[in-house]
Design a protein around this nucleic acid. Structure first.
Length: 594
RNA sequence: GGGGGCGUAGCUCAAUUGGUUAGAGUACCGGACUGUCGAUCCGGUGGUUGCGGGUUCGACCCCCGUCGCCCUCGCCA
């Protein structure tokens, strides 16, 4: 072959190309020998084309070569496009009307028998993930994984177009920065020039983008890699990608509105789904009360009900004591749930009870309603009137189940939030919801949470989040009452974005540092550059960051973040393919003074 | 660091709850076949049951330790 370079890709040829002399480059997806014929499916990222070699008197060499190739060999094929025999078209392939009758084949590279099958078959289990991650270059040949990486590209493209059209500048910020207190554990990089000193890789470009606002770049975005040295989860990687965005001279509604428009565009282009605007907003307190979570999955019901008023009226010591000590009694009513859980599941040590206990509950109280009466053991503590009130409150039907938790408010919320998600899984409430996207803003977060271990307040969002104007007075008196001008974006129970209006007043910023237990000296030492910058005509500004890996997960319909990252780390933060992290040469350490 | 699950042929899984020679599908190798398309049919190779120790007449199975992978809590401003 004088030139092996392709004239077409493997998803391109149609009946209209019949008679053309073409060259294809690709990988052997499948081999089918049939007597004196060989069929090869040649695959590239665009599609699959069938190549055929028929033995005759003059092409013995070619036939032998075609008969000898293995899966995943890389080939160049030259041949003539011809229509398939009538009735032999393959409607499953875009190129199924034609085939290429090979006149010459060049083996660009061989491949040993792959350690797992690259070809995917519906309903068939693919190889284990650790093996696939070790040979990721083969795994990434799978069409489904190629589709998710194309999605990542489309997502980035939509974002760049949408924001550029609206006057945003895509600007870059340093990877080598300064370690700051608060927040996640930093990845550190030793300085060779300054032995004993360290750079930190960014947890986010937070401070730089605020400084860009102060510098007058009033609409900024960046598709930024962020790094946090914390333990991994199914939806968390140590390095991940955020759409980082910041705007000057805006309030909360401006940022939310901009992201709502962008979200609509993303879903339209990347998923073909039309979401309706505006996106629902829910206060943090309401989310915690009704769903026991600040990132509620609202695709199903099972909402949490507060039973304090009712619990006060009953003669049940457990409830009485909890209420008396300032706690709450809350419940989930599971319609027709009684038969789904045996008394053994519900009793202490039982499956469902353990879910609650592991989430922090002391126990799970329960009532079944069968034969028009309550059963479960604790119903004897409830008077007929109390039982009637309960019945009316939930509209009890025979077969219903009530799960109750009495505890401190935050514990009760967390426990029932966990139980609620568990119930949804066990009861299959999310089946058939693959195309449902429940999007909502969570707003009005408390600015600070008290950390009993450290004996101080910690920032709920981050230390640069502006308090609501009417709450500023509480900074000096009772910081726990301060609500933040912060917002999280939640889709189907995933936190996919979070941001805030920032503090642009150096006095308030200093006050917040003080609430967080930073002395003026410490604040000056760690954040002096920011406090100084805020004095130099800082504009009001705010922004948000979207977790693009999670967006890609949701749009791609996977619950595994590694499915949407080309070269992810495993759960112990190791790159299974390269073996990173790995020891380095002693000389490298010496150069760094380590 | 805690809790849970898993580890058997290259791959995906089974092995009747401690019992004879650890099986199946697929992949791979060989053979047959001129319209296949997850080809089919016939035959074949392939096992330190993650690793180490223990209990037992006997261990894939039970016990102890250890390694690895996954989920989760802590952690993730």
């Amino acid at each position: 072959m004088h030139d092996w370079r392709r004239t077409h890709h493997c998803g391109e040829l149609r009946a209209s190309h019949t008679g053309n002399l073409v060259r294809l480059n690709g990988w052997v997806n499948a081999y089918r020998g049939y007597g004196q014929q060989v069929f090869l499916d040649l695959r590239d990222r665009h599609g699959i084309t069938q190549v055929v070699v028929e033995a005759n008197d003059s092409n013995l060499e070619l036939y032998k070569l075609a008969d000898s190739v293995g899966r995943e060999w890389c080939l160049a094929v030259e041949g003539k496009v011809r229509a398939r025999l009538p009735g032999k078209e393959n409607t499953d392939l875009a190129t199924g009307a034609i085939e290429v009758e090979a006149t010459e084949i060049v083996v660009l590279n061989q491949c040993p028998t792959p350690p797992f099958e690259v070809t995917e078959f519906p309903g068939e289990e693919i190889a284990g993930e650790d093996l696939r991650l070790e040979k990721r270059y083969l795994d990434l040949r799978r069409p489904s994984l190629q589709k998710t990486l194309v999605l990542r590209h489309t997502l980035n493209r939509v974002i760049r177009e949408y924001l550029s059209e609206r006057g945003f500048l895509e600007l870059e910020t340093p990877l080598l920065g300064r370690s700051t207190p608060e927040g996640a554990r930093d990845y550190l990089v030793p300085s060779r020039v300054h032995p004993g000193s360290w750079y930190a890789l960014p947890q986010s470009p937070q401070l730089y983008k605020q400084l860009l606002m102060i510098a007058g770049y009033d609409r900024y975005f960046q598709i930024a890699r962020c790094l946090r040295d914390e333990d991994l989860r199914a939806d968390r990687q140590p390095e991940f990608t955020q759409l980082d965005l910041e705007m000057s001279f805006v309030d909360q509604d401006d940022v939310l509105g901009m992201i709502e428009g962008l979200s609509k565009e993303i879903f339209k282009v990347c998923r073909g789904v039309d979401i309706s605007l505006p996106i629902r907003r829910m206060g943090y307190d309401e989310a915690m009360l009704r769903y026991g979570s600040d990132k509620p999955d609202t695709r199903f019901g099972l909402e949490i009900e507060d039973l304090c008023d009712w619990a006060k009226t009953v003669d049940f010591r457990v409830f009485k004591e909890v209420i008396a000590s300032g706690g709450v009694v809350r419940a989930i009513h599971v319609s027709q749930g009684a038969s789904k859980f045996s008394n053994t599941d519900l009793k202490p040590g039982g499956k469902l009870s353990e879910v609650a206990v592991k989430a922090g509950a002391k126990g799970l109280a329960w009532l079944k309603y069968e034969d028009n009466k309550f059963l479960g053991g604790i119903e004897k503590f409830f008077s007929a009137e109390a039982q009637d009130a309960l019945k009316a409150r939930f509209g009890f039907q025979n077969g219903d189940l009530l799960l109750m938790v009495a505890d401190k408010e935050d514990t009760a919320a967390q426990v029932l939030g966990t139980v609620r998600l568990h119930l949804a899984n066990v009861l299959g409430l999310l089946a058939g919801k693959e195309d449902t996207f429940e999007i909502l803003w969570i707003v009005d977060f408390p600015s600070f949470m008290h950390d009993p271990e450290a004996g101080r307040h910690i920032a709920n969002h981050h230390p640069f989040t502006a308090p609501r104007v009417e709450d500023i007075a509480h900074l000096d008196t009772d910081p726990s009452k301060v609500r933040a001008r912060a917002y999280d974006l939640v889709i189907n129970g995933y936190e996919v974005g979070g941001g805030s209006i920032r503090i642009h007043d150096p006095v308030i910023q200093s006050k917040v540092f003080s609430v967080l237990g930073l002395s003026p000296e410490q604040a000056q030492e760690k954040f002096g550059f920011l406090l100084d910058a805020l004095k130099h005509g800082a504009p009001p500004h705010g922004g948000i960051a979207l977790g693009l890996d999670r967006w890609a997960m949701i749009i791609a319909g996977t619950s595994n973040i590694r499915d949407v990252i080309a070269f992810p780390k495993n759960q112990r933060a190791r790159d299974m393919m390269t073996g990173a992290p790995a020891p380095v040469e002693p000389k490298q350490l010496k150069d760094l003074g380590l």
